[in-house]
Design a binder for these strands. Structure first.
Lengths: 191, 191
DNA sequence: GTACCTGCAAATGTTTTGCGAGCAT
DNA sequence: ATGCTCGCAAAACATTTGCAGGTAC
């Protein structure tokens, strides 16, 4: 990695620009919507949950809550940050981190780790589900399966434990598709 | 570090998830080896694998290979580093990182992520298995299950994918025992 | 008014890397 | 020989935090 001697611990450039395919999800939330001043928009789903829990609602939190409520994928903090910026005012990434953590601590978000070093977030009330990650595109597909849940229960039992949580991720590849294109890193094409 | 949306840097993205290698062999190596001086000790299991693959064997690599071969848990880099230091000479943690990555790239180790921010490593030829984590003690129990493997296969198929990898982790708690809130986090109580 | 928020920059913790020196093949 | 390795320190990054000024309630 390039490294300039004499360069002090400067402003850390963050992540490289995402490949174009990342826009698949940007699309869904950039849909035309009247640009209302933040205060006039109807409360997002997450905002309602926050109020229920007595969290102080500031402009930034409302904004982040909106972005997360509208996301249908599993955005990382950077994604949330970018979408928030695009949507409206200026937020600091530190605030995004803080808010996302707050929401997680309040059971509103769930933190996921699909590898790749960044945490990704998911609305908690979407219900119990698992993920299949397309290793070629990075796309994430959600699914649920009763049979698996029962099996997990049984497995834990067999080992002498009560099941209190589980994590199942499948990694797959589309069979007939051209297999050889550049294996895309964990880019954004997530659903 | 402050972040600015304006700039980007080169090769940021890490390697995409690498499907875990499956293997048949399941015999767990027991640590019943005589403690000989490092240079005279018989080649560890990992060392043999390295030689097979034509990797250059240095003193440090032999040492790290030995530590990993003898480990029956899922050590993180720090653990490997400490054990290597205790066992013999001075290694740099950078070398541990480099070696562990080399071994992973050569299919000898598998990288695991049980949360907690540190990667943990596991001999690849221990065979295909999953983990149950005792949430009270942090202990990790390995298990394998044919029925699950078949189910995973079927689930992927149903979603239109070929299964190339999977990750299953169960989190459990001992039922009858007093649910004592033992300090869990990385205390080393790992199996 | 007061306790909590925010933005900024600096700090953290983990992992990677440039560099010159050293070692395996 | 010579190309791969090593140790060291610094870089790279994702994430957290201290602080001073603002804001929700």
């Amino acid at each position: 990695m390039a490294r300039r001697p004499g360069r002090d611990y400067g402003p850390g450039p963050r992540r490289p620009w995402r490949p174009p395919a990342a826009d698949a999800d940007t699309l869904m939330e950039s849909r035309t919507r009247p640009r209302l001043p933040p205060t006039e928009a109807p409360p997002s789903r997450i905002e309602r949950l926050c109020i229920e829990r007595g969290l102080k609602m500031t402009g930034q939190r409302r904004l982040i809550a909106r972005v997360l409520s509208e996301a249908e994928d599993h955005p990382d903090v950077e994604d949330v940050y970018r979408r928030a910026l695009a949507l409206d005012s200026k937020v600091s990434i530190a605030t995004v981190y803080r808010t996302v953590r707050l929401l997680e601590e309040n059971g509103i978000l769930e933190k996921r780790d699909f590898g790749g070093g960044r945490a990704r977030y998911d609305l908690a009330d979407r219900g119990h589900h698992h993920h299949l990650i397309d290793v070629d595109s990075g796309r994430v597909i959600e699914f649920a399966d009763k049979e698996f849940d029962a099996l997990a229960q049984r497995l834990a039992q067999r080992l002498g434990f009560d099941l209190v949580g589980q994590r199942l991720e499948l990694f797959g590849r589309k069979p007939t598709e051209a297999p050889r294109t550049t294996p895309r890193r964990r880019a954004g094409g997530d659903t």
